[in-house]
Design a protein around this nucleic acid. Structure first.
Lengths: 218, 218
DNA sequence: CGTTAACTTGAATTAAGTCAACTGTCGTGG
DNA sequence: CCACGACAGTTGACTTAATTCAAGTTAACG
């Protein structure tokens, strides 16, 4: 199920966009090939991806997960080096940021879409910063689960089910925790009765608002 | 020295913008008055501000500092509650986000400016997330100082001088550390010879690239 | 059904937090 | 201009949450 909205927003310029970026299929676990010298903008059409930042000493922080319809902005010259990796097989459209922004400048609806998505990403990143800076392990995991519910959760008779495409390691790298701590917090939430898990990826949120409270949301 | 660029970008619509937001003077330590029910966009014309997020339990995280020319996007309905506070006397222009975006939709240069600033803010937030998630106290402080050098630093014969408008508490709230840890790390960097301080706010960076290395930048 | 990697659990360690006492800076008023 | 008071910042001793290291379990895939 493809969902390359930029083509839609762009109206008559859809062809110019197609010339800049062919849709690409990225296999699970592979990086999206990007020119490391230029800022990139990537649209996720299907599947799921993670944006990884590397600091010195091989430390990695996942700064965002993406799902269909999301826009990913990848800077070339930050303090850290970024790369985009597929969590599941994914279809993406990768643009050189400069060229896309130039086209968008003469295509207000496209530019508006970019702006709206860019702000959504900013707000998500900020909410996440609060967790990284000020929350304990349990609150971070609860926050993560509540956030995922809003993005990929399926609700049924008041209970949310998640099918997580990322590993415990990915969750840890996203929350600034080790894999062991993530695992212990899953166990803790399970023991409290707030969640149930089955297999490695399915999570049932038994009480979303209690979980949001546990997450330290105001 | 006022610097309200949106007026400039907006060309002929400058008057519509003026009707939406009068420039305001915010005294040091005061909040920028915002409608808590609506997303806001604030331009900082002069002075310095901090964007504070509150989680439950009275915990506060400063998610960004702002200087003249910066755009601040403040969401009304996030997981956390946000407010913008002046670090020094500041002149700002506050807009309801919805209305400003609507005007921007028919004013490509304005929209382009918003988009560019929004991406800058996103990239800063991401680089900061890496620090919050994966760096130790010393790396966080070094990162902070290098970042501030790039924004408000004054360079002179290869040495950077900073006049920090924020307190140690603000720095701690921004780096996810306590005031005591921030203080200890200042002492540590002083002892290593990487920085000198005089008074509460002046910092001399004796070797920016060594500091960037210490910051864990790649 | 067996293999492998992902996940879980436990015990010891550590970086940063907390609590407490002290010192320096800066603005005010004598 | 200097002395004082108040608050910002510093330093030290102890505690704690999360990491690290190590040893099991379990799920998923062929």
């Amino acid at each position: 199920m493809r969902c390359f909205e930029p083509m839609v927003w762009a109206g008559g310029t859809a062809n110019r966009l197609r010339m800049m970026a062919q849709p690409m299929d990225i296999a699970r676990g592979r990086m999206v090939p990007l020119d490391p010298a230029r800022d990139a903008l990537v649209f996720v059409g299907s599947g799921a991806t993670k944006l990884i930042a590397s600091a010195s000493g091989g430390r990695e922080q996942i700064v965002a997960f993406h799902f269909p319809g999301d826009l990913v902005s990848i800077p070339a010259n930050g303090w850290h080096s970024y790369r985009l990796s597929a969590l599941t097989e994914a279809e993406v459209l990768a643009f050189p940021a400069g060229e896309l922004l130039e086209i968008a400048a003469s295509e207000p609806p496209l530019q508006a879409g970019l702006l709206r998505r860019s702000m959504t990403a900013l707000h998500r990143c900020r909410d996440k910063s609060v967790g990284l800076g000020r929350k304990n392990a349990q609150e971070r995991l609860a926050s993560f689960l509540v956030g995922m519910a809003g993005r990929i959760g399926i609700v049924e008779t008041g209970r949310w089910t998640l099918e997580l495409p990322m590993s415990r390691r990915d969750i840890g790298d996203s929350l600034g925790l080790t894999i062991e701590t993530v695992s212990r917090q899953f166990s803790e939430l399970r023991a409290t009765g707030l969640i149930e898990t089955s297999g490695r990826s399915r999570v049932l949120l038994r009480d979303l608002s209690a979980l949001a409270e546990r997450a330290g949301h105001v």
